[in-house]
Design a protein around this nucleic acid. Structure first.
Length: 425
RNA sequence: GGAGAGUUGGCAGAGUGGUUGAAUGCGGCGGUCUUGAAAACCGUUAAGGAUGUAAGUCCUUCCGGGGUUCGAAUCCCUGACUCUCCGCCA
């Protein structure tokens, strides 16, 4: 949610930011409604003041034995007017909020302006020593490997549930579990995060708080009977931990890391990169979430990306970091880095992590504040989050990169104590 | 699933129709005292909104929504959540 005051006072600045995000301009509409709202509030508050004065006077008159019936009758009329004007005010406010709820965050000034993913900027890349993008032998892709080694079963997953619900089997299941534990241990023991195991279903307020709803509603699963949403990422429950709360500045930054299964309908994206793990409806992810002071949020974003990179380096997985351009930024993000891992079989980069600074956008939606030490005032907090990491696409890269010419998989050293084996096949 | 109790300020807790934004205690902040600290004492202590350069003035808010009334923390309806007992259950 953007700050209505910012829109009121700096409409052109807001327009410019939204245009860079390819957003249609509804600022004029908001300004008109906002003007109407304030006029109305001025009138209704005058009436309410009158009413309050009468409410104080009536018992006095009664005590003094005077006749208050004329005043009573007058107030009846005032009351009715207040009711109808109040109703109109809340209608206008609802209209404003309805528009505001669909308006995305403004991009940070450091974000390159661009129309689409084509214009994202590669910031850096990291490759294991002596890494070759084209291996000496013809690599099998992750689906072939999964089948050959009997560790992944996409077909039966589709039978049991539907397409995009993979089954991990035997050492594949163990590897998946090992990855999750490895990620969590690293964030907790080395990066200073506190572990959270969140609920996998959340209510509507939580989905609104982090910005998935209303705009991305179509991409969310929904359990109608209970009004609950299976989470698309642990970002939702973890960020909403502090919804409608005030944190103490001395406790910041608050850093949480948590595993969750993630559920996404991926509506409208059928047929696009949909084979195997490339696009699934359920996957596993460890998410890092931070609550920080506004002044520090961009430093914290850089650290967040490094925390994710540490994992890939430990696993010797080739990756690159992209700074998303304005046109590719997600709804709530002010700035975002994607981390993409290399798939030798696909011969392309696959998104495995997304690290974003939301500034106060989610905090305003979710009403998360902190109290400044300095002047004891309340201020909206800045929230950030990043995958560290999602296993599915990483699994593609990992299996393909760790395969031997014989078609077996060598488990990276740091993972072995989690898997209990060093080779699959 | 059945029956009952509850939800008030940072916390604890009073308050059942009339200047109650709300007693009291604790905590927080400022001060007096003290070499310093503690204790004691005094004062202070919400958020959001409208308006204004500002000081200020006004409005709203006692879990959410609706209603009764000139007037609601207080009465009625409804929803959410919490707790207790019973049933079921990994």
């Amino acid at each position: 949610m953007l700050d209505i005051k910012l829109i009121r006072e700096n409409p052109d600045f807001v327009r410019k930011g939204l245009a860079a995000k390819k957003e249609k301009d509804r600022i004029g509409e908001i300004l008109t409604l906002d003007e109407e709202r304030r006029t109305l509030i001025f009138a209704v508050e005058e009436l309410k003041a009158k009413k309050n004065q009468a409410s104080a006077k009536i018992p006095q008159m009664k005590k003094a034995g005077e006749d208050a019936s004329a005043l009573l009758a007058e107030m009846k009329g005032v009351s009715d007017e207040v009711t109808s004007k109040d109703k109109r005010v809340s209608e206008i406010e609802e209209a404003i909020n309805n528009i505001l709820a669909y308006i995305p965050n403004l991009p940070h000034e450091s974000v390159p302006v661009g129309m689409s993913a084509e214009e994202n900027v590669e910031v850096r890349r990291w490759l294991p020593e002596g890494y070759k993008f084209e291996p000496d032998f013809k690599p099998l892709d992750h689906i072939q490997l999964g089948k050959k080694l009997n560790i992944l079963d996409f077909e039966r997953g589709a039978k049991v549930t539907g397409s995009g619900f993979p089954i991990y089997k035997g050492k594949g299941a163990t590897l998946e579990r090992a990855l999750i534990n490895f990620f969590l241990d690293m964030h907790i023991n080395e990066h200073g995060y506190e572990e959270i195991f969140p609920p996998f279903l959340v209510n509507r307020d939580s989905m609104k708080g982090t910005g998935q709803i209303p705009k991305m509603e179509e991409d969310m699963y929904f359990i109608e009977k209970d009004g609950l949403y299976p989470i698309p990422t642990a970002e939702v429950p973890i960020t909403n931990i502090y919804r409608d709360e005030v944190l103490a500045e001395k406790d910041l930054p608050v850093k949480y890391a948590g595993y969750s299964a993630c559920f996404r309908r991926e509506a409208g994206s059928y047929g696009k990169d949909s084979k195997g793990f490339l696009r699934v409806h359920q996957f596993n992810k460890v998410e890092m979430v931070k609550f920080v002071q506004p002044e520090t949020s961009y430093d914290e974003l850089e650290k967040l990306v490094k925390n994710a990179e540490d994992i890939l380096q430990a696993l010797q997985v080739p990756y690159r970091i992209l700074m998303l351009c304005t046109g590719d930024l997600s709804f709530s993000a002010a700035k975002c880095y994607d981390i993409e891992v290399w798939s030798p079989a696909e011969q392309k980069w696959l998104e495995a992590s997304s690290c974003s600074n939301f500034e106060g956008f989610q905090a305003r939606r979710a009403n998360i504040k902190f109290r400044k030490e300095e002047n004891k005032k309340l201020e909206y907090i800045h929230t950030l989050n990043g995958s560290g990491l999602a296993t599915s696409r990483l699994m593609v890269s990992l299996l393909e990169n760790c395969q031997t010419p014989e078609g077996t998989i060598g488990i990276p050293k740091p993972l072995q104590k989690y898997t209990g084996f060093s080779i699959i096949g």
